[in-house]
């Protein structure tokens, strides 16, 4: 699993990257009440808005940590946004992206680097 400074995580299997927000981000956000997942087929570049996650008092853009095409979205979050709080780094994933620039993944932080980054906040 790789991480961004904007608190997204990426897990890659083959050329498919699963994307979500980190446990830290979910904690900071508070109770998630709504998630807007991307449409299938949407192409995103690294850093583009991918999804929107809302708590009662905040709406936050989730940025695409990698470039590619959205091949699957976690529509189950529509009825159960609390999943993002409960299991942010597993069942609370937002979308699966077919990588167009696989090298982007390697440049992201690994868990140790991300933990170290969190300790500076």
């Amino acid at each position: 699993m790789r991480f961004t400074k904007d608190h997204e995580w990426v897990a890659v299997e083959g050329d498919i990257a699963t994307v979500g927000i980190t446990a830290y981000a979910a904690e900071q956000l508070g109770d998630v009440v709504f998630v807007e997942v991307p449409d299938l087929g949407k192409t995103v570049k690294q850093g583009d808005g991918l999804a929107v996650v809302e708590s009662v008092k905040a709406a936050s853009d989730v940025y695409a940590p990698v470039s590619g095409e959205v091949v699957e979205a976690n529509t189950a979050l529509g009825d159960a946004p609390e999943t993002v709080n409960a299991v942010p780094e597993t069942g609370g994933w937002f979308a699966r992206i077919k990588l167009s620039v696989p090298a982007e993944v390697e440049a992201l932080m690994d868990r140790d680097a991300y933990e170290a980054f969190l300790s500076t906040l």
């Binding site: 904007d6 997204e8 981000a25 956000l29 508070g30 708590s55 008092k57 905040a58 709406a59 936050s60």
Partner: peptide
């Protein structure tokens, strides 16, 4: 992820 508001408890 952007955060544009201060997170705070919104339930009892």
């Amino acid at each position: 992820m952007s955060m544009n508001s201060v997170g705070r408890p919104t339930r009892p």
